[in-house]
Simulated scan of single mutants.
Amino acid sequence: MSTQHILLDGLPVSFTDGQTIMQAAMAADIFIPHLCHHPEFKPQGSCKLCTVKANGRYVSACTMPARDGMEVENNSPDLNDKRRTMLQMLFVEGNHFCPSCEKSGRCMLQALAYELEMLTPHFPQFYPDRAVDASHPEVLLDFNRCILCELCVRASRDVDGKNVFALSGRGISKHLIVNAESGRLADTDFSLADKAAHVCPVGVILRKRRGFAVPIGSRRYDVQPIGMQVERLARRTTTEEV
């Protein structure tokens, strides 16, 4: 069978049957901004950061199958401007205080803001009133930072088989919950060994007694910006935190 290619920002990128634009790009070490994509999970296109133009149409790169001869636009001023707007909305819809966050330097939301040169949140802050759950002996949940990517929901359901997390509500009231009558993580069978404990791209699921262990300057995205870590993003493992 002849090799199939898409044209990604003018560069020929090969792919195999069944691969999405995102998968083809990552295999070629080409970065497409994303938050909800994970190589081990079925894509669902919830964050829209990976929006590209395929043959002139806006599509989600993580869900759109690659097709031979498809012309894809990814790194353009128009698309990056739209991505910055989406990032700005994510920042103001939660309580993201990067200097004091334990995930600072290892947070994909923060790293993408740097990558796309987001200099201001632009929109008025919502300052939602969200609780912190410190009931579990090993894990702290800070719901203030949730971006509704559903990675923990999918990991707990599809990999761990526990259904510890879920989303509740609609629209602006939509939020992450713990599937326990009490709503407390301590009243579930959640464990640090779970896949769900290691997939959060921001700072919601935090291991206790490990905060700020890596000094500034040595953190993941201090060492190398997210756009240069395509290979690492393409091979996430259960033991490696995002």
Results as ranks from 00 to 15, higher is better:
1 M>F: 08
1 M>V: 12
16 T>W: 06
18 G>I: 13
25 A>K: 02
27 A>N: 15
31 F>Y: 15
31 F>H: 14
32 I>E: 03
32 I>H: 03
33 P>I: 11
33 P>S: 08
35 L>V: 11
42 K>C: 06
42 K>G: 06
43 P>A: 08
47 C>T: 12
50 C>R: 09
55 N>S: 04
59 V>N: 01
59 V>A: 03
59 V>M: 06
70 M>S: 04
71 E>C: 07
72 V>Y: 10
76 S>A: 05
76 S>E: 07
76 S>K: 06
79 L>K: 04
80 N>Y: 14
82 K>W: 12
83 R>Y: 04
84 R>Y: 08
86 M>D: 01
93 E>G: 04
95 N>M: 11
99 P>W: 04
100 S>C: 05
101 C>G: 01
104 S>L: 04
107 C>H: 01
108 M>H: 14
112 L>G: 00
117 E>I: 10
119 L>C: 03
121 P>K: 13
130 R>W: 11
133 D>S: 06
142 D>A: 05
143 F>P: 04
144 N>S: 15
147 I>A: 00
148 L>Q: 13
149 C>Q: 05
149 C>T: 12
150 E>Y: 11
152 C>Y: 10
156 S>R: 09
164 V>R: 00
164 V>K: 02
165 F>D: 02
172 I>C: 00
173 S>E: 13
175 H>P: 00
180 A>I: 10
180 A>G: 11
182 S>K: 12
189 D>L: 07
191 S>N: 08
202 V>W: 01
203 G>H: 01
205 I>K: 00
212 F>V: 08
220 R>Q: 14
220 R>L: 15
221 Y>N: 10
224 Q>P: 02
225 P>V: 09
227 G>T: 10
228 M>F: 11
233 L>V: 03
235 R>H: 15
240 E>Q: 15
240 E>R: 11
